[in-house]
Design a protein around this nucleic acid. Structure first.
Length: 104
DNA sequence: CGAGTGACCGCAA
DNA sequence: ATTGCGGCCACTC
């Protein structure tokens, strides 16, 4: 069997983010917690920046529902992508995280 | 191999 | 409600 402990933290993050259903969002802390490191939320952001951009990072937002400032195009570009996913974004660049939060 | 760093989070004034 | 600061952990150079 495959030992997940052999996977780098980054690999787990990829797997989690890649499985986020369309129309749902998760927080960086959520992804970090799913990877076994509840306090590694910063790393998740780092992976998003240095890692594979092909993954749906647009579905990953802050815990308060605010969008990622470092997303390509800024919060504006992020907002556009989320709306394309069917997620309603407020004019203040925030999503109803409490309602759209994905729980595996 | 060492130090710096970040698409964060929580708490205090 | 907003603003500022520290802590945390893996990744990059």
């Amino acid at each position: 069997m495959v030992r997940l402990i052999a996977m780098q933290f980054r690999d787990r993050v990829y797997k989690i983010v890649a499985q986020i259903p369309r129309g749902r969002v998760v927080t960086y802390g959520q992804v970090a917690a799913l990877c076994g490191r509840p306090r590694a939320a910063r790393i998740v952001g780092g992976i998003a920046h240095w890692g594979d951009h092909s993954l749906p990072w647009q579905r990953v937002v802050h815990k308060d529902g605010s969008l990622a400032a470092g997303y390509p195009g800024g919060v504006e570009g992020h907002k556009q992508v989320l709306e394309a996913e069917g997620i309603r974004v407020s004019k203040d660049y925030k999503v109803d995280i409490e309602r759209l939060k994905w729980n595996p």
